[in-house]
Nucleic acid binder design. Structure first.
Lengths: 208, 208
DNA sequence: CTCGGACAAATTGTATACAATAAGAAGCGA
DNA sequence: TCGCTTCTTATTGTATACAATTTGTCCGAG
């Protein structure tokens, strides 16, 4: 509801109101608010009342910057720990991703998103750091990824696929620094696609 | 209770048992478990049962590595955004820290910890990234910092103070990369003090 | 003796009621 | 009219009861 714009930035979120609206009691609503607060989609003021956080473009830039750093770090660790099995799995996923974006008449965006998600998650798993996994999960908003992909053209899809291929090369050579550099660039490129599409808009929500 | 070793690693944490033990109902216990899970002090298995996580030395190394990366990033951002006012505040804090570690006959460890915390928190604030602040708070376990400081000798305290001074130089010149490098080294040094003190021990808890 | 299946126990998820607290509104005096 | 106090109301914190799910155990068939 926050990400779809159904709730406006700054709007107060009363537990009882939300509970009624969702047809559940306050208890699961409280849990959900806690999670959303951890993901910074919801803020609490000094007296514990909840409000919809407003993500300015700067906030999104901030999130992407951190994600670039952390996924880059994950890629480096993954490269250092790469096994033939994992490498093969990654190649298979990227092959499927390639097939999805080359579908005609229209590329299969849902397929792209799914395989892209699998690709990044497998790298994260290969990085073998519970903490990194936990921290990143709070940082990657799939709806933001989704909106970014909506603005991809054929060339952007191909670039994404090629960057994944580059990553596979770095992984095959266990070249950690290279993998880190490619991944950081990969994420930053995604941000610029997002930023170009939202240029001049005050917040994410008003664009949704 | 987890950090003091009152609860053993791997031990199951029943909400009801904890509630009884703490004299409260299950509701606040549930909230607490959620928070502890976010900080990775508690794990949940696939069927949502909670257990005390066991932090091996590798896990602590993992946490310190991430902390070095993220606090380094924070230091760089802080350097780029540094103002005379903040710089002055940081200098004052470090002066007080210096006084605390030079107390005789024994250095004032509590004072060191307090001013060290203030120093790092002000840098984090100057970095001006809500996300970075949120993520780091889940990563910095003050009890771990406390235990590390217990193993500091006079030279380690001085080194810490001098590294803070170096950071101030980097901040004064708004030299982001330099600040990042110093901070990363500063955190890594702290880890090695910790690791040396715990060498050969299987887990944090058994050493506490 | 082992393997399933069903039953019992333990545990978590959810709903609801009440208590504590904070925000807002009304009244009162200067 | 402004500022203060007080009361009302809105909202969150906590306790408890019950439902749903999972785990462990026991018994019988093969």
């Amino acid at each position: 509801m926050v990400l779809s714009g159904e709730l406006s930035p700054g709007e107060q979120l009363s537990e009882e109101t939300l509970a009624e609206r969702c047809g559940v009691s306050r208890t699961p609503v409280r849990d959900a608010l806690r999670r959303l607060e951890a993901e910074l989609l919801v803020r609490k003021n000094e007296s514990q009342r909840s409000f919809v956080a407003d993500w300015s473009v700067d906030d999104v830039a901030d999130a992407f910057e951190l994600r670039a750093m952390m996924e880059g770090h994950a890629a480096r660790r993954a490269a250092e720990r790469m096994t033939p099995q994992v490498l093969d799995d990654l190649r298979q996923i990227n092959t499927r991703l390639c097939a999805a974006i080359q579908k005609r008449p229209d590329p299969d965006i849902a397929g792209f998103l799914e395989y892209n998600k699998q690709f990044h998650e497998l790298i994260l798993k290969a990085a073998d750091s519970r903490r990194l996994t936990t921290l990143l999960s709070a940082l990657i908003e799939q709806p933001v990824v989704w909106r970014t992909a909506q603005h991809y053209g054929a060339e952007a899809f191909n670039r994404s696929h090629n960057e994944h291929d580059d990553l596979l090369s770095a992984f095959a050579r266990k070249d950690g620094p290279w993998a880190e550099a490619i991944m950081a660039g990969h994420i930053r490129r995604a941000f610029h696609v997002y930023a170009d599409a939202h240029r001049g808009l005050a917040s994410v929500e008003s664009a949704a």
